[in-house]
Design a protein around this nucleic acid. Structure first.
Lengths: 101, 101
DNA sequence: GCATACTATGCCAGAATTGATATAACCGCA
DNA sequence: TGCGGTTATATCAATTCTGGCATAGTATGC
């Protein structure tokens, strides 16, 4: 069981921790990152629902296929701004933006 | 009444239009702008509810008083990212982010 | 196999955003 | 009126984001 494993590790000089603690992220940081991931998934869904390739969708968003690929991949080089504008351009209403993943 | 005014204006060579049309903004553009305005208002509210000055709140967000002033003013030089991270840092949950103005 | 269509990744110059500093404007209050 | 506290505006160097090109990877049909 988990606590037993933890005890053994600590006895051996290890300390169990979370990625969040390891990287020193505040809960706000984590929420921000998760939000971007949710939006990136929604973006891919929105595009597929419209049966668009990345190239055609990228044209609608005035960007390139390569950037759209990164947007959908949740790449850190993509801002919330870009994700939100992408979703709005694909017709997802602002009220629905954050609904479920 | 409105249609009468419009008729007169058109007869005089004018054309009634909206700011949106004038600036050639898509509805997605408008939604994006309004979203930022909503968030900027919520940010000010969140700060006031906690009875913080801009200086103290800015410290929590790792930014300066001047930028926070712009964030609350809905200045175009402020990204959605910054607004969202600000709200999260003030404890507004991501689920509540877009609720009502 | 090998095309063809689609998506992912490396890269970078140009553009936009950021934190910071300085300073101005506003608002009670003595 | 002048003062202390708060918020707004101007400006800018440094950082971050963006579009786009090139190319690599992946899947499907022949």
């Amino acid at each position: 069981m988990k606590t037993e494993k933890k005890r053994r590790l600590e006895a051996a000089g290890w300390r169990e921790t979370t990625v969040r603690e390891l990287l020193n992220l505040s809960t706000a940081d984590v929420e921000y990152i998760e939000m971007k991931l949710v939006l990136s998934r929604r973006l891919r869904d929105a595009r597929k629902r419209r049966r668009l390739t990345q190239i055609r969708a990228a044209a609608l968003l005035n960007t390139s296929q390569s950037r759209l690929a990164r947007m959908e991949a949740g790449d850190p080089s993509v801002s919330l701004d870009l994700l939100v504008r992408g979703l709005l351009a694909l017709g997802v209403s602002s009220r629905d933006l954050l609904k479920a993943a």
